[in-house]
Design a protein around this nucleic acid. Structure first.
Lengths: 246, 246
DNA sequence: CAGTGGTCTAGACCACCTT
DNA sequence: AGGTGGTCTAGACCACTGA
């Protein structure tokens, strides 16, 4: 592991342990240089990590202030229902409604940002948390990922996990979040009344090189999840859009 | 402006202009060093900006790939309904339902992360977009910000803007997003039916030093907004929580 | 194997904050 | 005025990618 990541981890641990309580200040860069025996650049890389995660606040000329300990977030937990469920102490499962190869329609092609007619796989599942219907998932898989999918066990495990094991890495995702009313079909699948609120999360995921891998439309029962986002002046990935543009 | 920001801006402009189309590769760090006549560290600071915004993807050993042009996002647009509305070409306004000073109840203190009994201001407004009710906003303002608020014009402008003008800077925010059904009151205020879906966005905003400034509960008509979030393996501020923990 | 990005060093000057 | 973070330079070595 890189030295700056080790230092960042040590500082995180010190914050969690209470050595640097919320509201207190971190040692100066000079102090940390002396303590860890590294160059200033390395210390700055370490604290930049903490700043990016919203753990500390930085102002030129003043010591860094501790905002809170790092959230237990992870890109992969956000990406995968299974991993998230497990991390929350729940047992995830799935009921497959549809899994079929096909060719991209005009609309699907636009969402996946591929040419119309491209081969893809359409997957629809009801996702369960401890046996209770929680989310309806409609996913389109593109390219290589699509082919691998047809050989997988879709009811139990995490597709993401199986894809990662085979070297297909998800690197970027763009999520659109809104509220909607349950239609007849969704209501029945989730065991709620028609018209009840659902939280909809649509997502385009791409590889490290920007190649679209999947597009997903996930609809959660109103009481099933809350999404949280942190942003700050320096790190900001959050937008509010009019539906017309979304 | 710092040199690395100038370089980042130039690269952004070049991407938008089509000089570096989506999917193409950026010049190597060495090329950029030569072109701009700066040290490699400066070039790396510039491209790190682009990476953080999801504009380019980086892999060790390979040229950087262009993912897309920068979104027109801004921290302040996310923070302020007014600024966002204007940027979307709409006319924002507000109807003040309540604006009164008070002392923090047990529950309010916990949300704002201040001691119970702290002075605060409670503000409730219906926010309108081009005259149409769009969102119900319930905000608690703490400390210094609270005092300033009572002297402001609350119907027209942006509170955030007025506060910024007086040197009170919002620096960090944590948002919780979920779906809910409209109650009798919210339904009437927004002109929708009781039970209709609303998108709820709760937010704690703090100063650069981590001091809580405001807590807000915003409820949008189901068709009024979509929230979008970008995340990646390297930059991730997104979490999915069980409601019990939220 | 050459090119490229990832990490690290050592030192410099400046802008801003605190006292 | 002294301390602190922000920026920048110049050079080094390593790990990974791709032809």
């Amino acid at each position: 592991m890189a030295r700056y990541l080790e230092i960042a981890a040590e500082l995180r641990a010190a914050i969690i342990s209470g050595e640097y309580p919320i509201g207190s200040v971190l040692p100066s860069e000079g102090d940390l240089v002396a303590r860890y025996g590294v160059a200033r650049g390395t210390v700055r890389q370490a604290v930049a990590q903490l700043e990016q995660d919203g753990v500390v606040a930085t102002r030129q000329g003043a010591r860094r202030v501790v905002l809170g300990s790092a959230p237990t977030q992870s890109f992969h937990e956000m990406q995968s229902f299974s991993m998230w469920a497990v991390s929350q102490g729940h047992v995830p499962s799935a009921r497959v409604l549809k899994c079929e190869p096909g060719k991209a329609t005009e609309q699907e092609a636009a969402m996946l940002r591929v040419p119309p007619g491209e081969p893809l796989v359409r997957l629809e599942r009801v996702r369960l948390l401890d046996g209770r219907p929680t989310m309806v998932e409609r996913t389109l898989y593109a390219g290589v990922v699509a082919e691998l999918l047809l050989a997988m066990d879709l009811t139990s495990g995490s597709i993401t996990e199986q894809l990662t094991a085979q070297g297909h890495v998800y690197a970027h995702a763009e999520h659109s979040i809104d509220a909607m009313a349950a239609g007849v079909l969704d209501a029945e699948l989730l065991g709620v009344r028609r018209g009840n609120p659902l939280l909809r999360l649509r997502r385009l995921t791409t590889s490290p090189t920007g190649v679209p891998l999947e597009w997903s439309d996930d609809r959660y029962r109103q009481d099933a999840v809350t999404i949280t986002v942190r942003n700050s002046m320096s790190v900001n990935t959050l937008m509010r859009l009019s539906p017309a543009l979304a």
